[in-house]
Design a protein around this nucleic acid. Sequence first.
DNA 1: GTGAAAGCGCTAACAC
DNA 2: GTGTTAGCGCTTTCAC
Lengths: 335, 335
Amino acid sequence: MTDISRRQVTLDEVAERAGVSRSAASRVINNAPHVSKAKREAVQRAVVDLGYVPNATARALATQQAGAVVLAISSDNPQVFADPFFAEVVVGVNSVLEETELELMLLLATSTRGQTRLEQLLRTRQADGVMMMSTHGDTLAELADKADVPVVFGGRPVNFEPRFYVDADNRGGARLATEHLVDKGRTRIATITGRMDEGAGTARFKGYQEALAVAGLDAGRVAHGDFSEDGGSRAMAELLSEHPDLDAVFIASDQMAIGALRVLTDAGRSVPGDVAIVGFNDIPSARHTAPPLTTVNQPIQALGREMARMLQSLMSGETPSPLILPTRLIQRAST
Amino acid sequence: MTDISRRQVTLDEVAERAGVSRSAASRVINNAPHVSKAKREAVQRAVVDLGYVPNATARALATQQAGAVVLAISSDNPQVFADPFFAEVVVGVNSVLEETELELMLLLATSTRGQTRLEQLLRTRQADGVMMMSTHGDTLAELADKADVPVVFGGRPVNFEPRFYVDADNRGGARLATEHLVDKGRTRIATITGRMDEGAGTARFKGYQEALAVAGLDAGRVAHGDFSEDGGSRAMAELLSEHPDLDAVFIASDQMAIGALRVLTDAGRSVPGDVAIVGFNDIPSARHTAPPLTTVNQPIQALGREMARMLQSLMSGETPSPLILPTRLIQRAST
DNA sequence: GTGAAAGCGCTAACAC
DNA sequence: GTGTTAGCGCTTTCAC
């Protein structure tokens, strides 16, 4: 293992050592043509001897390519990133980036400061591409979608369809979940929605409505949550007081389902005996609730992977199609 | 909101527009002294008019400062990053970086490829500093600790004490947990350890031993796990067959505790009636197991925050002291 | 196949 | 205070 605390070795030094011009050395490094075999080898030897590593900054300046992409997560709440969801996305993204020379920059834009930074980033090509996950607000998203830097979205904003995105089939998943409730013979099926200013929130609500419409059932038992456990509790309490006859609930996130479950139990309703519930996301905790939660799984790592792939494709001048990843029902004891 | 799809505006253009020299403009941008008020204002106006944003790459090349730090997580298993733990660390790190001009780069070094990249990074000053979390192996860590780039460690390697680190008090937490079991009147207290090639694994084991030594109890009932749920199940089964008399288990991670809990239940041992257990990490699921898990909480976001702060301090030439963050016992029904 | 030379956009001496 | 100048380390025409 070579000594790490050595100062930067420049291309000039390599060239000198190899007895060639700097341009020749450069050609070898970037394995470009027009170099004699002899020189090529001489340079390669010099590179090894000196432990040369190209200076990425200088290269970036010369080529006008940053050699980095950014994963930007814009939200009004710094804590959302603590959601394991993003960790999984990152793993997926990383798995494809690892095959390339691209660095990954992470931009958690919560404050206005972060937002500004994101805008500047978009404008100044400090990154060769951006993967954007926005949990709220469409204006930044529209802005990003218009930037001349390649941008792919993870998930879709509410009122706006980006040119390039990969999303989970939230609507389909919600339909699946609700249909499952119907299949189980439930007829008074309520829902607790997520935040309706997020794409996932509205899509899951639509899926619920569709499934009930098809089944010819009433889709009027709805309470709005915010994806959080507490929000789920509140919404469940509301539902219970306004629609005490409900016999099932489709809940737009497992976190909310956990909150709702507690309220149901406290109210003396057995699950799934009196009320069947299904959640969404398939978080680890969903396996450990009592009873374990039926839920909808989405392929999160795949989402990250496909975002990165789509970005690559975009960066190499292609025009990829948007992608919707399938979700699937995980059946457990709560239904 | 300004149009984003505009090409790069250079400092020269700003200078020309303001009718000053480039150096004057540069001074204003970096609010350095020696500029008359008039010119300063002229430049500021030009900046706004033109929508000038400095080119970070060029600046980095000129100043020899990357303007970015990296969070490197080196592990032999790509999946470890999916652990919510890291998401929390990132939130902490980001909260302090957000106050600065520094970008955050994420380096998940799993493959050899990633390792190489990390080494190069260390060597070429592509980043002004690195925060390093290594889950295994000490050689890379020692290498990093010797690099001339500021490096702070999150957690400590097993056989090696870095110069700058912030760590949770794993040993103290384990002692706390074990003492709690002692206080509950348990006398045949076993342990399931984590991976013993990770600092957290060995430290928690030491804490267990210490507590039992102080209490004058036998610390011989031990099985080794790997922090995973399955590993916990296996280890618990082993413990049950080799030390069927045990009446408590300190388990070095909640994930393992969940696995162990299932095995205990399946074996007909009631928790905490027959066997009391306590876990470590305070993951969300720990609240939803049956019974809910007593566990040790560590301040993960604070860990991230302090790593970033320590790095900043290091980068500004100071010599910070290592930091150990307190852990605390969260008492629930499993004891 | 080869090298000289001109940048990439910025900062930092230095002389005025 | 101010502007001129020389780089930072690399890539890339362009003529040979």
